[in-house]
Nucleic acid binder design. Structure first.
Lengths: 350, 350
DNA sequence: GTGAAAGCGCTAACAT
DNA sequence: ATGTTAGCGCTTTCAC
């Protein structure tokens, strides 16, 4: 005869939340019957009549099952962790959207942690583990990241996205950086350029290294001479400016510059404009990522489009396969990028 | 004498997770002592010696407190819900960053729900409530949104961001849309324009209405004649194209167009280019939001910059005040935007 | 087909 | 200063 509000020790957060006990009482059945009736998978164990009564009572009382309690009891949460270096970087929102689509279809929630400083990575991961996340997606990993070791030791189902794991211990979904560079170099070569430079990303990041190697390989495949390479300190417009400045100060001036990403390419634009050089008449420029609006800058940027949403979606699907114990078919999935030709690349003057 | 692996009924998700009981046993003390020793707020109740032993045991065993269990016991989760209409819309990532900064400083996690279709809003909210979120931040609200009624009824501490609540029932943190429009109109008036039009946002959204009213008021304040107003069906480049087309087909052609956001302004660019009209020589254009890269489009867009990160941060702080039962000092916080003058606006030809 | 009972891992009275 | 005890709300054997 205990009323919902008659509970004792810890006072409920919201005033008198309705529990499964209240529903059982209202429906005149046992709590376990309510539990079964409200679970789609076990609903059929219940007689039609009782089922109806339970559902009516639940609705009438405004019953909302407490996921915290069921998670504790079953040992299964419906959370996945997502580690990002910078949510305002435009490559991540579509990746998140892909992850979210996969997760919410399974009624999972993402716990997003924006790990600005890599030194915090382990602490954040500890907090995520304390929340009993069922799996993890990491977009933060650098080469030889100690976090990979740590997360492997925990046994948490983990997949990397947008970054491969050199050690091969973790699954990953990435875009084909080498192919992307081949697309860019081939396009420039077809335009008649022979002296092609590269503004490379930080060589600590797998993408930075992969794109640089892809660039070098693509030149070799075409029998072109090795191009100048300047390493940027970051994937930013500012870093692009610095690198381009450095590139231009070294003779001879390249006919084309393949940039590790769009922001770096836009930094190169800045330096060219400041130096009175024209894109693409004096130097052709290519980017990487196809950020929103790079089709509207002057000149519209030729770049490589990555399947960002697909990247996130596939990474999440792979992680859920791991969670469900499905045999891992692929350890690294490599998705195909696409060259988008706009107006920042042009034929070499005859 | 039960070993960690000897547990019975529900098999643990990860093999033999270390519990507080294991630590207690290893340290030779009671679980409640461990609980106290590991809580910064109650640590001082424990003798230095025992404290050291407990900490050593916890570290040695790799103990990780289970937040699910403590949340169930205390009735307090460390989750906040965040409702977004579209995470790939560039205004939201910096807002999320601001929310995340506030939340993670308090050791809370965000549960982000991307509510693409407003019809799903209530279902998503139910799922969020089932997770026992301590508070909610909504960026999805339309005017007279039924969700406001629903969430008010639940009593969940809720704050709107980037959208005010017409009914005044919920706290909100917004940018000053009227002031923004005044900035834009004053700027154009100073350039000599007298015939100024507005591509308005959907009038169902609070921002769409507020900006439109701000526009009209700003014209009146300057004793300018009422301008033509075309309502866009969305805040998109495509909707901007459609609206601009409609505006140009009606005589007389305006000297300047104030757009409800940057994408709409870029849609207006498209139509102008297609019609052989020049920005700003033939028509000046202003945007709203200062999206990334609009400083690099041709011509660089004059627009209104919103303090997006601050918006998110303040909304989260307000929500946490509500959660902690602090007296709500402000129901709606209005932040000041800033006009960024670039090259899409110019003086009226004499 | 339904009920009884146990217990997930933790915290907070209440002892002592 | 530490131990005892009683649950938080739910699911899942095990009976009947």
């Amino acid at each position: 005869m205990t009323s919902p509000s008659q509970r004792s020790t810890p006072s409920p957060a919201s005033p008198a939340a309705v529990t499964i006990r209240d529903v059982a009482q209202a429906a005149g059945v046992h709590v376990s019957t309510v539990s079964r009736a409200l679970d789609p998978n076990r609903r059929q164990l219940i007689s039609a009549e009782v089922l109806k009564q339970v559902e009516a009572a639940a609705r009438r009382l405004g019953y909302r099952p407490n996921r915290t309690a069921s998670a504790l009891r079953t040992g299964r949460s419906n959370f996945i962790g997502v580690l990002l270096p910078d949510i305002t970087n435009s490559v991540f929102p579509p990746i998140l959207e892909g992850i979210e689509a996969s997760a919410s279809a399974r009624h999972y929630f993402m716990l997003i942690a924006n790990v600005r400083d890599a030194a915090n990575g382990k602490a954040v991961l500890e907090r995520l583990l304390a929340q009993q996340v069922a799996g993890l997606i990491m977009a933060t990993v650098t080469r030889d990241d100690p976090l990979v070791e740590f997360v492997t030791a925990t046994g948490l189902p983990t997949v990397l996205v947008n970054r491969a794991d050199d050690s091969g211990r973790l699954g990953a979904v990435v875009s084909d950086d080498r192919l992307a560079m081949k697309f860019a170099v081939d396009h420039l070569a077809q335009l008649g350029h022979t002296h092609i430079a590269h503004l490379a990303g930080p060589q600590l990041s797998p993408t930075g290294l992969g794109r640089r190697q892809g660039f070098e390989q693509a030149l070799r495949d075409r029998d072109l001479p090795p191009g100048q390479i300047v390493e940027c300190t970051a994937y930013s417009r500012e870093a692009g400016r610095v690198a381009m400045q450095q590139l231009l100060s070294s003779a001879p001036r390249p006919q084309a510059v393949v940039c590790c990403n769009d922001l770096v390419a836009l930094g190169a634009y800045d330096v060219m404009h400041a130096a009175g050089l024209r894109v693409p008449e004096d130097i052709s420029i290519t980017g990487h990522n196809d950020m929103p609006l790079v089709d509207l800058v002057a000149p519209p940027l030729t770049t490589v489009r990555l399947p960002h949403r697909e990247l996130g979606w596939r990474a999440a699907e792979m992680m859920f396969d791991l969670i469900l114990g499905k045999p891992g078919l692929a350890s690294t999935v490599v998705l195909r990028p696409e060259l988008v030709i706009r107006a920042s690349t042009a034929a070499r003057p005859a």
